[in-house]
Nucleic acid binder design. Sequence first.
DNA 1: ACATTAAGTGATT
DNA 2: AATCACTTAATGT
Length: 217
Amino acid sequence: MNAQEALLREKLDDYYTGIFESELVDQILKVGFLDKYKQGEILIDIGENMTHIPLILSGSVKIIRQEKEGDELVLYFLEKGDTCAISFINCINRKQSIFRAVVDSNAEAIFLPVEHIDEWLAKYQSWRHFIIDSYHFRLIEMVESIDGLAFMNMNQRLMKYLGDKAKVQNKQDLEITHQEIADDLNTSRVVVTRLLKQLHNDGKVYSTRSRVRVNEF
DNA sequence: ACATTAAGTGATT
DNA sequence: AATCACTTAATGT
C-alpha cells in the first residue's frame, strides 16, 4: 500500500467506519480517486452527464434546482458521510443531471466511476444499504423542502436555511451576503435584509456586512 | 479620494 | 412578500 492510498484509507475510515465491509473499502480505494473543490465550484450542472458518484469526506455541497436561466432554489445540503443517490441513478441510467451541485464550503470527496457501482450493488450488502439509505434520506430532505415552500413563510424558511447551513459547515459564523441568501431562497435581497433585521432584533442571529452569526440552530 | 459592493429604508402594489 | 428608487455604510484600489 502506498502513502497516497494510506491517506485515503484514513480519510475514508473517519466517516464511513463500520459502514462498509473491508473488502469493499479495498475496492473503493482501488478505483476511486480523491478530489478537492473550492467554495463556489460547480460539481455537476443541470443537463450534464455523470460519470462518477462522490463520497463526501469533508466540506459541504448545496443541491440546487434551477428553472430555465434565472430562478433557482437550494433544495438541501450534503455533508461528510453523504453521497447523492440521485447522482447514482443518473449514473446507472446514463441520464443527465436534473440538479446543480455547488460547493458550499471547501470540500473533498472520493469519486467512484460508474461502472463499479452497479456491480457492487449486487456484491456488497453494505453498499446496497448505503445506497438505499442515502436515497431515503434524500427523499426526506426533498419533502422537507417542499414543506418549506408550501407551509412556511419566508421568515421560517430563512431560519431553516441558516440553521442547515450552520449545521453542515459546523460553525455558527457564516460568510454570506444578503444577496446570496436571497438567491438560494429564490427571494429578493430587500426581503432578506428586512427579515434578518427582525431576527437580529429577536436575538436569533447577529448580522454584519457579509456575515451572519446564527445563535440558535 | 474615489469607485464598487453590501445593506438599510420608505412607499407602493 | 415583491419591487422600485434612493440612501447610507463598508470595503477595495
